[in-house]
Design a protein around this nucleic acid. Sequence first.
DNA 1: TGGGTGCCTG
DNA 2: CAGGCACCCA
Length: 592
Amino acid sequence: MDSSSDTYLRKDKPEILHSCFHGKMYKDSLTSYSNSSIISQLLRKTIQNKKALKESFLYLPATALPSSYTADSSQVNWSCSSFKEGMYLTKQHSMAAGSEEDPPHNEHHQAKRARVENIIRGMGGSPKARPHHEWEISGTSVKGSREEKWMQMSHTLEGGCMPRRTSSIKDEERHSLRQQLQNMQRLLKHLQERFLQIDNLNSEFERKTRHDQELLEVLKHELSRAVSRSVDLVFKNFSSAISNRHPRLLAGLDCNSELSGSPEPSLGADVITAQSAEFTKGADMQNPEDQTEALPLVIRNPHSVRPCPMNQVLKQPHDMTQLPLQFKQNVPFQNEILENLLKYGPHDDLRVPLQRILPTDTSSPQILDLPWSSSKACSKLSSSHIDTEATETQPASLGQERMEAACFSQVKLEHGNLQGVVERNPYLSLNISFKDTEEGLTPNHLKKAKLMFFYTRYPSSSVLKSFFPDVKFNRCITSQLIKWFSNFREFYYIQMEKFARQAILDGSGSTRDLSVTRDSELFRALNTHYNKANDFQVPERFLEVAEVTLKEFFNAILQAKDKDPSWKKAIYKVICKLDGDVPDYFKSFACS
DNA sequence: TGGGTGCCTG
DNA sequence: CAGGCACCCA
């Protein structure tokens, strides 16, 4: 055997081995295979040595062959690389020498080739079974490389390079080749898996990098929300537990629900007043003279936990027969829930109703006489003037005109001087009773009005007055309440007209096709508007009225009555007759 | 004339 | 939702 060829084989073997097994893996080995300069080099060397090789393979005894080419299966550590290398070289050889091959050998070689190809096919290395993309590297198809190797192998066998001295040698050779092929198969499979792993990791990594910022933002957001919720929940549960175990302990709690932890009333009251003063001071930071535009009539609830005048709730017996069956929650005191809904709707930031903190044990007069209004006082923050309406004995008429004049000012403070009194005389707060009525309408009044709309679309002012007992009515307040209902109706009728027209467009020919159920899109639109939190069970009657309204609009539009500018009035007449009574329990809910 | 209503607009 | 306006009605 030519020494140069031997040298070549041995010299390059470790490098190829390395690429094949550690190859940084697959890509390196692939690159080496696709490297044209290496191929050219190999080809050149191979051609140069073809004669020597030919002679070696054809005429030398098997023992004289390089170890890589012996049929000894124990040497199948032989590595894919040496195998490939050998195959490659022999293929080059056979290709180069093909034209010189003796004709008598052709038949035999073809038969052999067919057998080997069968073996190769039978080894299940179907390239189709693998995704194409994993083979495409640097424009060179790995699949192609592999097929090329298969071809190399076939050509090796057909190339007449193997000695044909004895049948045993051929058997051994065949056996060896099978094993080599199997090893190759395993190695390829291994490499494919590794490549897939790496590929997946890289994809994954890119995707993660791309969405890193977004994820960060989302995580931050979710974290803050979760923390906020958790704090709410913990505080709520804690408050509830405390109230159950130590009702009296909390009797002196202020509007901020600060747990003094001390049963000493004076201490509790001190905490209250100190905080009230601080709170009020902070709220007054904004100079009312800075106001440049009209303030909304609705007094916005500060974000403090604002206790309501709970006198009615706590003092009145819980008449179970008057419970609103519409409420979904099956808890003992449903009216309390409505009150909570009105005061701390699910969308409010703070949902720790004081009645959860405060005991519901009505046996305690101390509790019943809690200074609700003093708590109220500290939550009425945006006052620009300081009125002293400390007690019921204060003439209500005193502020009547002024209140009407200040109707558009959202503020009023009943503490002020009183607060000083309370601060100086903490015990006094326990017995001071403010008036129960409010001069302004709050968001909770608005919520309540919206819920009332499910029963009545056209409430008279007298109805309104009777259902908002905690509101001190004046012309302005009445107008505002009436205006609210007017706005409610406006939205209601707009929706009705919209859906009626849509039904006509959709091809409904008869009102029989129309219905309003809780699943209806129309109902959802209305419910979202009047019962956003969806925590109030809308009465069935409302659905009926809504359906009638929808049908009225539908018919009117169908009959082209909408050409008349006042075509809706006829519908209004019909609908106003469908008003029902507002349940009495609405009267009980103070929502200041 | 005041109260109530609806429409339009912001 | 609120303000403004026009309109209707008792």
